[in-house]
């Protein structure tokens, strides 16, 4: 299959995964491996002062040499906090400039604050970042992010961590039709069929965390998501048959029936 290209860089997997909410780093590692993802999101947080220096870190479980890290701004409610966080991430990851920008509106819904996100994206892009932006499924906002130079636009399917699936496929369809940069569904996927539907709509990829980490068997669900994304992509490329309410076109021959 043709690769997913983000900011000129090819990826063979169209599934991007988060690394939060796992039992431990070993489960994180196994789930990410089973997902086949090449891009993994990470959060940037204060280090625990006085922590054991020999304590394992996420970077040991998922070596940055093998995975493309996508530092996020989860938990940021202002453009300023998001910008500071990503500048720290760039320093932390040796100048790595591909980032996931999200600026949230409130802690109950985690719905994106598009106005603040636009402000942050503008500053970050002018500062040399390659911004993959988490946003609402508003086609006008999506177009604005593309116009300002975001390398991928990532509308929600439904609220972060809700597992409610794709609530507005029509908006996603408009966004996919109108944008040239990759459109990646980020947030809201609950199970494999949701990921397949996103890909069948023509999304370039799907980003998820809780759908895998929150499953009873995260490693098995990671594998399910890998297959769902591939299946959905292939179905999109194959071009589905037209829907008909009913039809007099059976799949088996109409002649040669016995007793005729």
């Amino acid at each position: 299959m043709e690769p997913l290209i983000i900011a000129g860089q090819p990826f063979s997997s169209r599934l991007l995964v988060g690394t939060g909410k796992y039992r431990d780093f070993e489960q994180t590692r196994l789930a990410v491996e089973a997902s086949g993802a090449e891009i993994v999101t990470v959060a940037i947080r204060r280090t625990n002062i006085g922590q054991n220096a020999g304590e394992p870190s996420l970077l040991d479980a998922l070596p940055p040499s093998r995975y493309t890290y996508l530092p996020n701004t989860a938990g940021c409610y202002t453009a300023e906090d998001a910008i500071r966080t990503l500048r720290l991430a760039r320093e932390l990851l040796d100048g790595h400039s591909l980032v996931k920008l999200e600026v949230l509106g409130d802690p109950h819904t985690l719905y994106p604050n598009v106005a603040e996100t636009l402000k942050a994206a503008d500053v970050l892009i002018r500062d040399g970042f390659q911004v993959m932006v988490y946003t609402s499924d508003d086609p006008i906002a999506a177009r604005a992010f593309e116009a300002m130079g975001c390398v991928a636009v990532m509308p929600l399917a439904s609220l972060i961590g809700s597992g409610m699936g794709i609530l507005n496929p029509w908006n996603l369809q408009i966004i996919i039709n109108e944008l040239k940069v990759p459109v990646i569904v980020d947030a809201g996927v609950g199970t494999a069929s949701d990921a397949a539907i996103a890909m069948e709509l023509g999304c370039a990829g799907v980003l998820m965390n809780t759908a895998i980490a929150g499953a009873r068997d995260p490693v098995l669900m990671a594998s399910a998501m890998k297959h769902a994304v591939i299946a959905g992509r292939e179905a999109f490329l194959a071009g589905r048959m037209a829907k008909k309410i009913y039809t007099a076109a059976p799949s088996s021959p109409t002649s040669g029936l016995i007793g005729s």
Binding site: F25, V42, R46, L58, N72, L92
Partner: peptide, 10 residues
């Protein structure tokens, strides 16, 4: 001062 690390996150 802020001193940060990468941690698991979506």
């Amino acid at each position: 001062l802020e001193i940060v690390v990468a941690v698991g996150g979506g």
